[in-house]
Design a binder for these strands. Structure first.
Lengths: 157, 157
DNA sequence: TTGAATTTAATTGCACACAACTTAATTGTA
DNA sequence: TACAATTAAGTTGTGTGCAATTAAATTCAA
């Protein structure tokens, strides 16, 4: 800090800033921020069902298949049992899902839909459209972005 | 559930699955998963500095400006004081940053870089390139994706 | 066939995220 | 100037994420 710099002026960086080191020039930050903002956009829609976003993702998978092991859920959602187990226990407590050991392989836990969980599908099925409208993203941009992200995902797996 | 369906066959969905309700057809999921996977990709690079990803983002901003209020950090990172305050306290404990009230407005807290925090910039400046290489994404795709995400971000703000 | 290696969940501990609320300082206005 | 409204951080409580470890079941290999 120089004596010649007034208190109000920001001192120059000691090391010139690497442009790559700026927030806007990285891929990670917009991804991180956009992800959280979209999750937040879901929140008012999910609130009526008292669901969190990852809980909703689990239900989306079960509405397709009724039964999935914890491992399968984890593979699809890229989440491990450390995240899923407590989340699933909360859904179980609310009688939305069942948890039972697979009798053919006692290591696995099979997650199934209970009637209350099945019953949520119908009212929740409008959520994706509602969110799409809320974002106001042109269909083409939406799909382009989705495809690029899906591609990135398979690349990173 | 029909009596004619064997125990092993998955019972048909009670409600036909809305394609929009499938994980792959939504924007949110690839965004959510890609964000976490990229954060995970940073982890080995940040580990040597004992930094988490959001801590690293705070330092990125400070390396550009030396001083920022909690509010400013929150605006750039889209994080509130509930997240930032404990995070900043951890960085303060490690003497990477300083926290002091703005004498001109005692509501604000000014976050500044301490020498140890300044010293991290030099060795950390290669992280963005390293990550870029790690992802193996063609430059053009990288930039296209970044631009679309940035656009989405401004749209969602 | 037995014992080592692997697999699957669960558990523990830590660090975010974020809603809701509190506290203190500042601003705007009658 | 008073004092209500607003603003900025901090606090509290809940729910993820995830690394590391544990425990139990299964598989593999000698």
């Amino acid at each position: 800090m120089s004596f010649f710099v007034s208190m109000d002026a920001a001192p120059a960086p000691l090391t010139p800033v690497n442009p790559l080191q700026q927030l806007e020039n990285q891929l990670c930050f917009p991804l991180y921020a956009a992800s959280r903002m979209i999750t937040k956009a879901y929140q008012p829609l999910l609130e009526q069902f008292d669901l969190t976003y990852p809980q909703y993702l689990v239900l989306l998978l079960l509405w397709e298949h009724q039964e999935r092991t914890v491992k399968e859920l984890g593979e699809h959602l890229v989440l491990d049992s450390g995240t899923l187990t407590p989340l699933l226990k909360r859904l179980e407590q609310r009688q939305l899902i069942s948890r039972r050991r697979d009798p053919r392989d006692e290591r696995s836990v099979i997650i199934g839909l209970l009637p209350a969980g099945v019953a949520l599908q119908q009212p929740a099925c409008r959520i994706p459209e509602q969110l799409f409208e809320k974002m106001g993203l042109p269909q083409a941009e939406f799909e382009a972005l989705r495809n690029q992200l899906t591609q990135l995902l398979t690349r990173l797996r």
